[in-house]
Design a protein around this nucleic acid. Structure first.
Lengths: 325, 325
DNA sequence: CCTCACGCTGCACATATGATCAACCTCGAG
DNA sequence: CTCGAGGTTGATCATATGTGCAGCGTGAGG
């Protein structure tokens, strides 16, 4: 019996009625004289047998596969891959990631939420790209103490202040440096009511936006102050640190690096960061590959915004091999 | 602002999550940080803007457009167009329409329903193609009295009997000829309790399967008996009749033809036929074009099963012009 | 500067949909 | 012929989905 052929005809007719003519399964069941659940099953079969083909038109640029690949491989909610005009210039990268991150942030923001901000060039670019969009009941909070000279734009407090202004949000600063010279000083500062309260608010943020840092002499962190010493740098290198996320250092596999330096940090901890539902990481450029991969492996990030070149590397065999080594 | 581009990206990502990854809108809304109704609207927009393309694979033979065209133009529930190996041979047509009609009928049949059958070669072919498939509580009933010699396979009673056997159904015959010589005879027969009861059951059938007849000397109707006289034929021609549906004659536009002949018919009336939810018409071939078109215009049919050539004609300009003439 | 009209947002609801389940039928093996 | 396994059916139900609605922000035009 030519079941297959008649079947295909019916599958097609029903699929057409459903997908093209927009009839409900109920209407179709009455029209063709089959039970309503059967229509559902026939449509299922029509999809399985590719009688209906659902095709998606990828957005221009072809980053969709990169994004999906990153999400699959590293378990992200969302990866956003941005084409960069000059992929070798860190400033160019930050400036082009920023607006995209701003778009993403606006999408994620909802009334009465708390937004935690770290610091860095990319964050700065994002905040600058933010349009003035008052959102009811939002609180902007620093995730770590300030770094570098107060008033510097990359300074965490300045970032938070600018963001709060754009969003007409309540501002919660952490009135302390991000790194202090001694463990004892950090302990004292953390004991301060205002500081600990601010950090607690940061730890309970709904959204965190963070950059990823690399401990090189050129980085903003080191060049703008001398709080991290060359001894610290050596210790970090020896311990295998490849970079930091909100001042917390990770090794190549995304594991925290345990060093005395940690005790001198004023900011949310990795555990606290992990408890934040939505952590958005923004970073790109060749120099940040290792820490980006590390952050991805750590599982801390829900969203990653990076450049195309880095995305390709993160999906390449090279990144895979390092996982084995 | 490159709204369109970022929009396209998000539309694509969401469409992909929904259609490819099979996530629910709820999951997507949480993953991408937009409200659930918005996901629904974005998906709607993705379809409207052809970010998702839904393509159907037509069944081999390319009759799908013909079928859809017939349904649209004549307001059918379903048209089934069958490719015929020899479109000029009426027997070939009937034999090839039959199995398709049988498939269709099996689909339409449901437990505890009443199936009314008319008569003719196509109906015979359908019944012969029916597999033995007992269906609970089905009643098969004649829609009109018998025609031609009793025992002839095309005979309405034989058709009904054979169908009832295949379906293990209860059989309700109309113990009378379909056409009698005088109006008076018809009146007497219709008054018979058994006959009128049978006709009432036929009139309340859930499904009716009918052929379409043409009043030519070659037709089974005329060749097998001499109940319709040449005078009748002339009167039919003069009144503009192009054929019949269950022995009721229609003009080219699908309107009933009022003639004394009507009073000599034993069978369900056009009004009764119109009250049956599902009327399946089976007919094909060049000679039947006019009556098929007429039956379609009458609005009596819910389903039409015909051959490809006829379907093309029914959608051609020629058929259109006749509507104006 | 004020006003109005439009569009967008999320909420709440009605509905459409897919899954579960028990009964049934079919087909093949014993 | 009898029996049992697998598949198919429609009833029922929880869930997913689309839409009307009120409120709000925005931008154009006075």
């Amino acid at each position: 019996m030519s079941v297959g052929l008649e079947d295909h005809r019916l599958l097609y007719r029903i699929a057409r009625a459903y997908y093209v003519e927009g009839q409900t399964q109920q209407q179709i069941s009455e029209r063709f004289g089959v039970s309503r659940p059967k229509v559902s099953r026939l449509l299922q079969r029509a999809r399985d047998m590719r009688v209906v083909n659902i095709t998606l038109v990828p957005p221009p640029g072809g980053h969709a596969d990169l994004e999906h690949g990153l999400e699959q491989r590293y378990g992200l909610d969302e990866a956003i891959v941005v084409p960069i005009s000059d992929p070798d210039d860190p400033d160019s990268i930050a400036l082009e990631l920023g607006p995209v991150a701003a778009d993403c942030l606006l999408r994620l923001l909802e009334p009465n939420c708390t937004l935690g901000l770290a610091w860095g060039r990319s964050l700065l670019a994002m905040v600058e790209a933010l349009p003035a969009r008052p959102t009811a009941g939002v609180t902007v909070v620093q995730l770590n103490g300030g770094l570098g000279p107060v008033g510097m734009l990359e300074h965490s407090a300045e970032l938070a202040r600018a963001a709060a202004q754009k969003l007409s949000a309540r501002l919660q600063l952490v009135p302390a440096p991000g790194i202090v010279s001694t463990v004892e000083a950090a302990r004292v500062l953390r004991a301060d009511a205002q500081i600990s309260s601010a950090l607690a608010i940061g730890a309970s943020a709904d959204i965190a936006v963070v950059g990823l840092g690399v401990p090189t002499p050129e980085s903003v962190l080191l060049s703008s102050g001398s709080i991290i010493t060359s001894e610290d740098l050596e210790a970090l290198a020896k311990a295998g640190a490849v970079g930091d996320i909100v001042l917390r250092y990770l090794d190549a596999e995304g594991a925290p690096v345990h060093l005395p330096l940690n005790e001198r940090i004023i900011g949310v901890t990795l555990d606290e960061l992990a408890s934040i539902k939505r952590v958005v990481g923004i970073a790109g450029g060749i120099g940040k590959r290792k820490i980006i991969r590390s952050a991805l492996l750590s599982g801390l990030l829900g969203t990653l915004i990076t450049d195309q070149t880095t995305a390709e590397w993160l999906l390449s065999d090279e990144a895979e091999q390092r996982s084995g080594g």
